[in-house]
Structure formats: C-alpha cells, structure tokens
Design a protein around this nucleic acid. Sequence first.
DNA 1: TGTACATCAGTGAACGCGCGTTCACTGATGTAC
DNA 2: TGTACATCAGTGAACGCGCGTTCACTGATGTAC
Lengths: 224, 224
Amino acid sequence: MADTGTATPRERYRAQIRAEIKEHAWQQIATTGASALSLNAIAKQMGMSGPALYRYYANRDELITELIRDAYRSLADTLRSTAAEAAEGSGEEGGAGLAGLAHAVRDWALRDPQRYLLIYGTPVPGYHAPDDITAISSQIMTLLLDAASAAPPRHPESPLDHHLAARRAWAGDHPAPPAVLHRALSFWTRIHGVLSLELAGHFAGMGFDPALLFAAELDDLLTC
Amino acid sequence: MADTGTATPRERYRAQIRAEIKEHAWQQIATTGASALSLNAIAKQMGMSGPALYRYYANRDELITELIRDAYRSLADTLRSTAAEAAEGSGEEGGAGLAGLAHAVRDWALRDPQRYLLIYGTPVPGYHAPDDITAISSQIMTLLLDAASAAPPRHPESPLDHHLAARRAWAGDHPAPPAVLHRALSFWTRIHGVLSLELAGHFAGMGFDPALLFAAELDDLLTC
DNA sequence: TGTACATCAGTGAACGCGCGTTCACTGATGTAC
DNA sequence: TGTACATCAGTGAACGCGCGTTCACTGATGTAC
C-alpha cells in the first residue's frame, strides 16, 4: 500500500510515526470520544513532548480529518473486497450481495464502534469534510448500488423511485433503475438504524441479542 | 405544570432563571455541540458572572443531565398527546397510531435536531444516565408498544419474536404478543435510521427530499 | 573514507486562552416580632 | 408600621488545569564533494 520501495529511511520513519500517532488517537477516541481528542495527551502517551507532533500534523484539525479519511477508506476497502469475494463465489443470486455487505458493515463497525460513529454519528457542528472524503463516501454508495442491482425488484415503482431517479447525482449517476436507487438508500438507512442504536449502547441492558435483531432486519429487508 | 400556586416569589424567580439557563444551554448546543457546553459561556451570554450559575446547578454534569431529562420528557409528552388524539379520533384502524407517532417524532426532531441527537446520537463515553431518565425512555417504549398492538400482524411469528418475548423486561413487561414486540423494536430502529442520517446532515447535498424517503420508509414499514 | 554542510526530529520555555470550581464578600429581599 | 435578623442572589478574585500553538534551540542523521 505505502510504496516503501522508493521511500528513504527518513520517509519510512515519518510514515511510521504518523501511523503511531493515529493509533494512539483512535485509542483516545475510544475512551473519551472524538471531541475530546488532544494532541498534547497523545504526545504524552507516546513519551514525546507536545510540540513534537507538529512535525507530523499541521494542527489538530488535520489529524482528525485524516482519521475520518482513514475510516471511510477502511470501510470502502472492506466492502469492496466483500463484494469481490461474493462475485467470485458461486453464481450470484439476488440479495446475497447485499446480505454480505450488511454483515461486513456490522463486523467492521463492531471491531471499533467509535470509528463507525466518527463518520456516521453525530457530526461536530461546523466541521466540513474536504472533497476527497465525500468522494470516498460516494464510492461506498456505488458499491451498495451495484449490490442492490443484482437483487430483483420486490415492489412496483413508487413516486419516490422517480423522484430519486430524476436527481441521481448523489448516486454518481449510477445507471441503476429507479427502484434500485430506492433500494440502496433504504438498505443504508435500515442498516444504520439498527447498527447505530446498538453501537450507541441503546440496546444495552435490554436483554435481547442485537445480532438477532440485525439479522431479522436484514432478512425483512431482503425478502420483503 | 410547575405548581406556581404554592411557590414563593423567590422560588418562582429561581425556576425562571433555571429555565433561562437551560434555554441558553440549548442555544449553545445547537451551534457548538453538546460536548462543548460551557457554564462560563452561558453566564456571559446572560450577563452574569460564571460562579453565579452555581446557585442554580451544582455543576456542569447536573445541567447536562437535566437537559437530557427534559429532552426525553418532551418527546414522551409529544408522543403521549399524539397517541391520545389518535385514540379520540374516528375508530382507530391498525397502523394509523404508528404512522402518527412516526410523524410526531420527526416533527419533534426537526424542530431541534441537537435535542434528538443529544438523546439518540453518539453518547459521551463514560456518561451514565440516572435511573429516572431510563424510566422516561421506557415510557416512550410503552407508547410504541401500545400503538404497535393496534396494528394487525403481517408476518408469521419468527424465532426472534420468541427470543424477545422470553426477555420482555425491556418492554416493561408489556403484555403484547411476541410479534408486536418485534414490530415496535423494528419501528424504532427504522425511524431512527432515516431520521438520524437526515439530522446528521448525511442527506445534505444529495438533492432528494428527505421527507419523501421518510414517508416511503414508514409506508413500507406499515404495509409490509 | 573523511570532512563540511544541510536537513530535520525533538525539546523546553513560553504565549494566551477558557475551562470548572472555591471562597469570602456585598447588597438586596424576605421573615419575625 | 417599624425594626432586627436571616436568607440568599450575585460579584470579583483566585486556584489549578490542560489546551493549541509558536519559537529558538540542540543534536542526530543524511548528503555532497
């Protein structure tokens, strides 16, 4: 991934420290939340002085932006490889693709809840993501649309379908039929609904198994 | 609501200032997010010195807790009166109750997005709500269960239904049939899915009308 | 292989800031006789 | 109605803290001849 081939030792060192900083940042986010992320605290944890980090990130905002970028990229990569595996596997039957993506999203999110919440949770008011990040997030949308295309339509076309089709810029002008645009969007909102409540701890203490609820939602989504 | 009948002038004054503090707190949350809430900033905005607020709230945490409590209470009140109106209206047909609640939730949330996100968005790691708050949130669950009870079952009973019925403590031991427990839970997650993405701004710039997507989700939820 | 110079990682001191919170106080408001 | 006392809202000074960020610096690492 990183082209260590042409990199000088210094460049490799820099890349390593940058990675180490991000690791500690994630660790800190996991315990105190993203809004409390502190450069000084990270430095202390790494046994360095605070100002040292400014060799690696221009400021706090740049670090947070890179964390968000990494999160989107990681999710996009995960979904891409899941989709690729499903395509290679025995002839794709409709819906298997979406089911695979759904479980991939959940697994990815449970591995590090704060990472999911950083990109899909409550946003910091005033923060505006740079363009390249919205580009990655639309790659994710495209993966959903591809998988949704493989599944047969279950409903007659609705007014919303045409509303969506008439403004498909958000779908990167994906050539899917109107019902598929709707399907992908609905998939996204439903997965996010169960998953975000689980990650935010709203099911904690309720006694049932969130995995079963997730599976039921997914099943309903695919067969209905 | 507040029993101003027996209250002394001083008590009424105190109640008024407490309310004013909360108003400014909400205003501040709306612009900078809940985690950046600052007592000093509120005091300054009210033309008082910082320490003055300690006459009204023991500390920052107590204020935040009260904001959360108020948010839950307000939502519970809104849903309760919506349910009451629906019951008074022409003989309740199944599903009308849930549809009414869904729109009531959305209207309530759009009126002040940060208020919804404060209770259902990304939680502050480490914060644990006091018992009386979880009691209000389970009142909300009961309202959903009542409305879900009126709608006829659409699906054969699933394994999840029984899983939920076997541990219905989270439902306040509501005597609803298993399928209804599942229905209410699914209603909650689906409404939250569309709504939270809308409130978090994830649909912004996509060009379609979130209200239509919400309506379509609701329709699918009720008729399917 | 050795020397001279440039690059760059990291330090420590310092800046101004705003935070939550405490404390001793003033002055106004209410209460008791 | 008037006086004496208690209650309580709000102030200003002060505390320690951690934050982001800058700056001039040391010392190690790499580069050029």
